[in-house]
Amino acid sequence: MAGFLQQIVVGLGAGAIYASLALALVLIYRFTGIVNFAQGELAMFSAYVAWQFMAVGVPFWLALVLALAVSFVGGMLIERVIIRPVEGAPELTVVIVTVGLFIFVNAAAGWIWSFLIKDFPNPFPSGAIEAGGLTVGFSTLGVFVVVGVVMGLLYLLFQHTKIGLGMRAVSANPDSARLVGIRVGWTLALGWGLAATVGAVSGVLVAPLLFLEPNMMGGVLIYAFAAATLGGFDSPIGAVVGGLIVGVAETLAGAYVSAVGPDLKVGVPLVIILGVLLLRPQGLFGRAVVERA
């Protein structure tokens, strides 16, 4: 039993990371109706930016803040420069453009920092808490705390600030929002900036666990997609719940289902995505949308 609970703790730790990337995906989807296939690569790039600051001697937490700031500006720039021209274009076009962005960012990171893996310092102490036969590493706890703080900050931003109100208005109805004087274009850019920042947090959380290299987020992205699909692509709460469920499901399947095992765990997101789409396409917390042609 203790072993089982231990696996759940491990799964929740992984799930918190998926949740943070899924949160970034959901933020962009809510504002622009775009699923950003490059989200994982942007997170990886942000982790490299943090690494670069540390490499020139900036202490970890300051490097993190700087990297988050760079990511925020970068996300806004990407929206204004790359995404703006295809806004409102068919889904196919938009997906292809974000896939292009994916390839470009991945290669650009390889060009700048080479494809050799880099050690990324773990900001959390290496010890663990032991309670009732369970071992919870400080790094797992740290991930929980960070993801929780990010969630809390987003909640405050959306529910208790004027900017957040404007952002909700834009996501509910861009045309009406424009009529009441909200600058829709800037709000969309702000959404991308926020998403890039949240993604950067997940990149920095992943980097110490997986080692920093350009293809680092490739594996995480598909779990984040499963999380967002499960929770509902337009629900931030859903992204977090979905992320945790995906993390636990993946860990349990890898540990206890011998036909799956650690090597075939990556099939879990596929099964989850297919299952959700067939049974409840809007996800657990999502709104069903009526489509008009």
Partner: peptide, 15 residues
């Protein structure tokens, strides 16, 4: 990394 950079930029440009 050059092929990736070229592919990525060209895809976006083509669209």
């Amino acid at each position: 990394a050059a092929p990736g950079v070229i592919f990525g930029l060209l895809i976006i440009a083509v669209m």
